[in-house]
C-alpha cells in the first residue's frame, strides 16, 4: 500500500538509539552530526526570521490592549455576535466543500485509475490546469455559467424543468460550487496517488472468495484507500478555512468568511489586534484539523492491529 502523502516523517530523535542525556551529548559531538547541524543552520535561521517571528508577533498583537497591556478582549470580540456567525459560516462552508469535493474527487480519481495511461494523463491535466487560471477569471466564468441567464439555467428553462431558473449564485450553493471546483485538484491528486497503490489482486481475491461488488468495495477497497480519504478531506477543510475570493464573488452577505473579515479589519479599519485574534483562531482551527487527522490515523492503526491479532 502506498504511504499516505501527508504522513509526517517520523521524528528522527525518537527512533535514534541511546536517548539518555549522555547519549545526546555523545551524538552532538559526532563529526557527522556537527556537519549536519551546520548544514541545517541557514534553514533554521530562515524559518526563525520568516516564520516563527511573524507568528509570534501576531500572537502578541492579538492579546495586546489599546493601552498596550494584556487583554483577551479581541478574542471575546471575535467569538460573539456577527464575528461568531462568520466563524461558524466559515466552518460550515468548509465542511460542505470538503464533503462534496471528497465525493466528486473519489469518483473522478477512481475513474482515472481505470483509464489507459495516456487518457489518465489527459484527464489529470484537465483537472489540474484550471487551477493555474487566476481565481478572478474563473469566478467570472462561473457567473456566465450559473447566472439567472447563464448557460445552465437557460438550458434548464429550455428543457422546461419545473422551478427553473434556479438561484445558483450569490447564495451558499454558489459558494460551495465555486470552492469545490478549486478544491477538486487537491482531492483528486491525493486520492489518485493512494488508489494507484491499491493492489488489484486483493479485490480480485475478494471476488474469487464470493464477495459481491458492494462487499468488496466496502470491506476491501474502502479500508485500503481510507487514509487517502482522511488526508484529502482534512487538507480540503484546512485550505477552505482561508478562502477569500470565491465566497466574496459567488456568495451573498450570509457567506462572508473569516479571511474577508480579517482583510476588512486590516485594510479598512486599521484594526490589527482584532485581525490578529481572528488569524490565531484560524491557525488553531487548522491545528485542530491536523490533530483530527492524527486521531483518525491512530484509530485506523489500532483497528488494523486488532484485526491482525
Amino acid at each position: 500500500m502506498a504511504a499516505p502523502v501527508l504522513a509526517p516523517a517520523e521524528p528522527a530523535v525518537a527512533t535514534a538509539p541511546g536517548s539518555g542525556p549522555g547519549g545526546l551529548r555523545r551524538r552532538l559531538s559526532g563529526r557527522r552530526t556537527r556537519f549536519g547541524l551546520l548544514n541545517a543552520t541557514p534553514i533554521v535561521v530562515y524559518l526563525l526570521v520568516l516564520f516563527v517571528y511573524p507568528i509570534f508577533s501576531t500572537l502578541l498583537l492579538s492579546v495586546e490592549g489599546e493601552d498596550g497591556g494584556f487583554t483577551l478582549h479581541w478574542y471575546a470580540d471575535a467569538l460573539q455576535g456577527t464575528n461568531l456567525d462568520i466563524l461558524l459560516a466559515t466552518l460550515r462552508i468548509s465542511a460542505e466543500t470538503s464533503l462534496l469535493s471528497l465525493v466528486i474527487g473519489f469518483l473522478l480519481a477512481y475513474w482515472i485509475t481505470r483509464l489507459r495511461p495516456l487518457w489518465a494523463g489527459l484527464v489529470m491535466l484537465v483537472v489540474v490546469v484550471p487551477h493555474f487560471i487566476s481565481a478572478l477569471v474563473r469566478t467570472y466564468g462561473w457567473i456566465i455559467l450559473l447566472g439567472d441567464h447563464g448557460l445552465v439555467n437557460e438550458a434548464l428553462v429550455g428543457l422546461n424543468v419545473p422551478g427553473a431558473p434556479f438561484a445558483l449564485l450569490y447564495n451558499e450553493i454558489g459558494v460551495v460550487i465555486g470552492t469545490t471546483s478549486v478544491m477538486l485538484p487537491y482531492t483528486v491528486l491525493l486520492l489518485y496517488a493512494v488508489m494507484r497503490g491499491v493492489d488489484r489482486g486483493l479485490t480480485a481475491a475478494a471476488a474469487s472468495m464470493g464477495a459481491g461488488r458492494l462487499v468488496t468495495f466496502r470491506r476491501v477497497y474502502l479500508p485500503l484507500v481510507a487514509p487517502g480519504l482522511v488526508n484529502a478531506s482534512v487538507l480540503c477543510f484546512i485550505l477552505c478555512l482561508g478562502y477569500y475570493v470565491t465566497p466574496a464573488l459567488m456568495g451573498g452577505p450570509k457567506q462572508t468568511m473569516v479571511a474577508a473579515l480579517i482583510d476588512e479589519q486590516v485594510m479598512k479599519d486599521n484594526q490589527w489586534n482584532g485581525a490578529s485574534a481572528l488569524g490565531v483562531i484560524l491557525l488553531l482551527l487548522t491545528f485542530a484539523g491536523l490533530l483530527l487527522l492524527q486521531l483518525f490515523k491512530k484509530v485506523g492503526m489500532a483497528r488494523r492491529n486488532r484485526g491482525a491479532a
Binding site: A2, V5, R116, P117, A120, G121, M124, V128, L189, A193, R196, R200
Partner: peptide, 15 residues
C-alpha cells in the same frame, strides 16, 4: 501492476 502510469513521484515533483 501491468500499466506504466505517470510516475507519482515525478508528478509530485513537477507539482
Amino acid at each position: 501492476m501491468k500499466d506504466v502510469r505517470i510516475d507519482r513521484r515525478l508528478f509530485l515533483r513537477g507539482v
